[in-house]
Every structure is written in C-alpha cells, then in structure tokens.
Simulated assay, not measured.
Amino acid sequence: MKTNVFLALMMTMSLSAQQTLQLEKNQESPKASLSEVSLLAGHWKGEAFGGMTEEIWSPPQGNSMMFVFRLMNDGEVTFYEIGHILQQNETLILQLKHFNGDLKGWEEKDETVDFKLVKIEDNKVYFEGMTIEKMDKDHVNFHVLVSESGKEREVIFRYERVKT
C-alpha cells in the first residue's frame, strides 16, 4: 500500500514539475508577436510563497507589455518585480528586475533576469524557466522555476483577474 501511495505521489510531482522548458543548445526562439500574450493585460491577484501576490500588466504598446508584481506577507511588501515582455527580432523575451520592499534592487544596475521564448501553444506560452498557462479569460497560472539553496523547483502562481 505504501508503495502505491509513493508511486502516485511521485507521478503527481513529476507531472506538475514538467511545466517549464529550456531551449536546446543552439536553438533560437520562434517567431512570435505581443498579440499572442495580450491576454495578460489587466490586474491579477493570487497567492504564493505564503502570501498575497499581485500583477498588473499593460496592453501591448511600443513593442512591449510592461508589468509590476508584488508579494505581501503579513501586510508587508516582501518584494517587487518590474519588467516587460519585449518584442525583439521577431520574437519575444520576458525581462525583469527584483526589488526588496524598500526598493533596493537585487540585480546589478545594468542586469536583468531574462526568459527567452521557447514556444507558444494554444493555452501556454513557454519561456525558459517560466510558463504562462491560460486557464480561462479570468484565470492564469505562472509556473516559475526558482533556485533555493542550490536546488531548483517549480512554484505555481495561480491568478484571478481583478474585475473593476
């Protein structure tokens, strides 16, 4: 009985851990346009890392869609992100920077965390280490590969559109 439970747990973990992809060596990002990710435009709220998460995305304009993110724990900002999906050389790249709650940056001044486009399917956009999954028009999941203590794991951010 314990073996069956263990196997079922391992299968579930492996299924959920297969959401993010990487480009193969020498593989280039496919052609894509911002219209293929425009569903993100809007205000989103969810939960992750034991707190409340929030993202606000602009509509595509000027070859980019900008966004801001914040994580709140116990009524305090844990960290922010600011970034964009940029249309560049006929493909897309997601770039971001992290900031503490006091706006002190994590990355060096001229550095960004970059996620190159891997592929786009009907309801999923795969960037290296991050997959955006459209559940329906008001729900999206972000599957993000994070490194903690030298180990990588996927974190799921489940968002619901904020209706104004």
Rank of each mutant, 00 (worst) to 15 (best):
S33A: 12
Q61D: 09
S64K: 14
K137F: 05
S38M: 03
Y80I: 00
F127Y: 03
T12K: 11
V5P: 02
L86K: 14
S29L: 12
A32W: 11
L71D: 08
F157D: 00
K31C: 08
K31A: 10
W57P: 03
M10T: 14
V144I: 13
P30I: 05
P59L: 08
M65G: 05
T53P: 03
V125K: 09
Q87S: 12
V140F: 11
E108A: 13
L117K: 06
K45M: 11
G62N: 15
L86I: 10
I56Y: 14
E133N: 07
F49P: 04
L96W: 02
G83F: 10
I56W: 12
M52C: 05
L103T: 05
Y126L: 02
E160F: 07
P59V: 06
E55W: 12
F142Y: 15
L23N: 06
M10N: 11
D110R: 10
T91Y: 10
S58H: 03
S29A: 14
K45E: 15
F115P: 02
L39H: 11
G42N: 03
D114C: 01
L9M: 04
K163F: 07
D136P: 07
S64H: 09
F99Q: 01
I82V: 12
A8N: 15
N123C: 02
D138K: 14
R161D: 09
Y159G: 02
V68W: 11
T53Y: 05
G62R: 06
H84I: 02
P30N: 09
K25R: 09
T112R: 10
E76L: 04
K45D: 08
E154C: 05
E55T: 08
